[in-house]
Simulated scan of single mutants.
Amino acid sequence: MIFRQLFDTSSSTYTYLLADAEHGQALLIDPVFSQAGRDLALISELGLKLTLVVDTHAHADHVTAAWLLKQKTGCRIASARVIGAEHVDLPLDDGQTFGVAGITLRAIATPGHTNGCMSYVLEDQSMVFTGDTLLIRGCGRSDFQQGSAKKLYHSLTQKLFRLPDACLVYPGHDYHGRTVSSIREEKAFNVRVGAQANQTDFIEFMHAMRLPHPKLIDEAVPANLRSGCPEDGRLPAVPDWADIRLNYGGVPEVDADWLHNHLDRVTVLDVRLNEEADDCSISSKLVDIHIPLDQLRERTADVPDDKPVVTLCRSGRRSALAVNILQEAGFDRVASLSHGLMGMSQA
């Protein structure tokens, strides 16, 4: 199984990618709207096809990317039936199995944080994705969205803690850099419900917390009841000057075919060494300006800004850094040639 744990710093949200290498189908758990480009870039670089996106609940601290990813890839959307979110293709009930080719999950209804919370456990019970129900040494709050400390205690002790002790726990959030726990650890050490805390212990703890109102709840919850679809139903704006593809490293790229067909619309910047540029017949037909990478920070004023800029080098590695340098200098229409002149030669 291919497994990746991804992180959104603004909301401290974990997104999980699961895929079967043989079948090439992938699913995402709890994708974040603002991170959709990152997630799609990773899926592409791993040679996978996104088939399913799944939310653990209607989040109050970020907007899901479910609808956006469906528009981009044609994937299906799954979430708890009780939520009643729009655009859902697969409404899930307690105990229902689902997944993609080679990956099977079972839905466990775990209400309490919200009424529509679900956790998802792998078929072999080696991993469970608990959303906000069970966090590492903690749990989700229970004071909004039909939350209930009593229901949450039941979900934790009678459902999740019934999983095998060795089952790894992957939460929806962590605010202290912790990435994974286990059922055994949480049963023993969870601050709110571990060490055989009884229902009274837990409920009194939860009622005494007095947490501040989530900052994004008024925006996030209505959007998530639409599976992340904006109110106007429109896709976010994308660069219109080129067929830009963001790689997993966060660098905007164009491919060789696009550049070949649009040379008159861009300024091509070669950032290789002087001797490399002099010894290449291909680049002489493409390049408008040559500035070695180690000089670029001091010479950004030499780069014309009347057209978008495409940076290139031998492999696409140095030109990626050149994009970052130009962006820091205020260039907003800039991209790297994917795979550099090596890719151009192959094309």
Rank of each mutant, 00 (worst) to 15 (best):
Y153R: 07
T130D: 08
V128R: 04
Q199D: 12
V121Y: 01
K187R: 12
L152N: 07
S126Q: 10
V128L: 05
C167K: 03
Q146D: 10
V221P: 00
F161K: 04
A197W: 01
Q146P: 01
G172I: 03
A166D: 11
L163K: 01
K215R: 15
V191W: 15
H154D: 15
R162N: 14
E186S: 01
I203V: 14
R192K: 09
F205P: 00
D132N: 13
Q158S: 12
F129N: 09
E185I: 06
R192A: 14
M209V: 08
V128H: 01
H173K: 05
T157K: 12
Y120W: 05
K151W: 09
K159G: 05
R178V: 06
Q199V: 11
Q196V: 14
Y120K: 03
A195Q: 13
G147R: 14
Q158A: 14
T200A: 13
A195N: 14
R192W: 12
P164D: 12
Q146I: 01
G172S: 06
S142D: 12
T133R: 03
R141V: 06
C139Y: 00
D201L: 10
S142P: 01
R162E: 15
I136S: 02
L134E: 00
F205K: 06
G138Q: 06
F202E: 02
N190P: 03
R162S: 15
F189A: 11
D218W: 10
N190M: 07
R141N: 15
V193S: 14
T157I: 12
K187M: 08
H154T: 15
S142N: 09
G194K: 00
Q158Y: 12
V121N: 00
G138H: 10
E204G: 04
L122M: 15
M206A: 14
A195S: 08
S126I: 09
A166M: 08
M206N: 08
A188M: 03
D143V: 04
R184D: 04
D165E: 09
G194E: 07
C139F: 00
A220Y: 05
P214I: 07
K151V: 07
Q125P: 06
P214H: 03
E186K: 04
L216V: 00
S181T: 03
Q158G: 08
A166Y: 09
R141G: 10
N198H: 12
I217E: 02
L160G: 02
D218A: 15
L134Q: 01
S182D: 04
D143K: 02
M127D: 11
V121T: 03
R137K: 13
T133Q: 06
F144T: 06
P222R: 06
L134H: 00
K150T: 14
Q196E: 15
D124Y: 15
